[in-house]
Design a binder for these strands. Structure first.
Lengths: 211, 211
DNA sequence: CTATGTTGCTACAGGTGTGTAGCAATTCCG
DNA sequence: CGGAATTGCTACACACCTGTAGCAACATAG
């Protein structure tokens, strides 16, 4: 039929590098949330953004760099939201109620999650499938969180005078349950509003009064 | 140099289908545990097993079927180990201590994990990266476990007479923490022996005595 | 209405994986 | 020892992804 009309691709809207960069990150974010990190490919992102691969390569060195930038942005955002409400470890005799501190922390965390769900979805996503660097990175982040929590918890246990709990396990418990709560909140905000977790936690802690 | 000697591949040891099948599943298991489901490919399994792809295709229809068989086997094994110690829901007035029931359940679970770590590693592996079917399947399994747990927990809360806890959240808490404990046990059995979790749980529950 | 920089595109070369058709080596049994 | 029957292998046709080199379209300032 027709004599090989080469069919040039319609030119994508031009965009300043910064703008394109965030557009591409948003696109990558969408794919990561839908199908996991392992399905974030340069090719896929380019197509989803309506652009060709070289455009992506102009802004990110390779797939690893793209993913890195993606979680980097998420971490920065997440921390920015959280930082204001991160409590320092009080002194042993300060007049601070450990239970209230924990509840306040949980509330702050959950409301951050609620305020910017997609960011937190990334942070909470299992790193499986990403390159090893990514996994290492996210594991390191979790370890940091755990360390900070453990200090708080040690203070809390000493201060509180209830049962003498294993601080390490308790810190892990708090972290794990908080993440679990966040996941439920993200999946079914209707059924699992923050207040529900607050009430549950309060009931648990209330039962744990010092003898 | 040489006149195109075609270099035939050394013939792999012949094997009856059933035997080969389990060999391939074992190989796939190894890869899954090392690098996650997403890196279990027909090609990779074939190579790791010292065999060519058609051999694998002779036993599994495709990658999805292979993964399905893999987790299938793991689920069967896991359930077989667990079934003997799965408690039925006691009557409201039966003479059973809910705390002891929970502790016994945890102990049984952790000792199953310890007895067959690789099987449980599969069950506890995040399904991310596998095909959607796999994710659906593993999610369904978790839902089943949760349903069973919730019934037990409802009984326990009523029977116990402590604080009136949200049964759904409590069941989720137990499930999440048990999984977490299993993961720790699998990663660092030295630092996190089953008794440590038992002691921690006992301390927690002990603090929760009915008023 | 050009000239120049910017942004995007095409095209290539290569890697790894999927799934299938048809042939070749082995094994086993008469 | 000589056929089946069984088991494994080679080869092919795709599909999708990675990176890169060089060209084409656009935008804007003069």
């Amino acid at each position: 039929m027709a004599g090989a009309t080469p069919v040039r691709r319609p030119y994508a809207a031009r965009m300043a590098p910064d703008e394109r960069r965030t557009q591409l990150l948003d696109t990558a974010l969408g794919i990561a949330l839908e199908r996991g990190f392992h399905d974030v490919t340069i090719d896929g992102v380019a197509r989803a953004a309506g652009v060709t691969r070289p455009v992506v390569y102009g802004l990110f060195a390779d797939r690893a760099a793209l993913l890195d930038a993606l979680v980097d942005r998420a971490e920065v955002r997440a921390l920015a939201q959280l930082a204001p409400s991160l409590p320092a470890v009080p002194g042993l005799h300060d007049d601070v109620d450990p239970d209230e501190l924990l509840l306040a922390g949980l509330a702050a965390f959950l409301s951050a999650v609620q305020a910017d769900p997609d960011t937190w979805r990334v942070v909470l996503l299992p790193p499986e499938g990403g390159p090893a660097e990514l996994t290492a990175r996210m594991t390191a982040g979790r370890r940091g969180a755990l360390r900070a929590l453990r200090e708080l918890v040690e203070w809390g246990i000493a201060r509180r005078g209830g049962p003498d709990l294993d601080a390490d396990l308790f810190a892990r418990t708090v972290l794990t349950l908080s993440e679990g709560a966040a996941r439920l909140l993200l999946q079914q905000p209707g059924r699992y509003p923050p207040e529900r977790f607050a009430a549950f936690t309060r009931a648990l802690l209330g039962g744990l009064l010092p003898a």
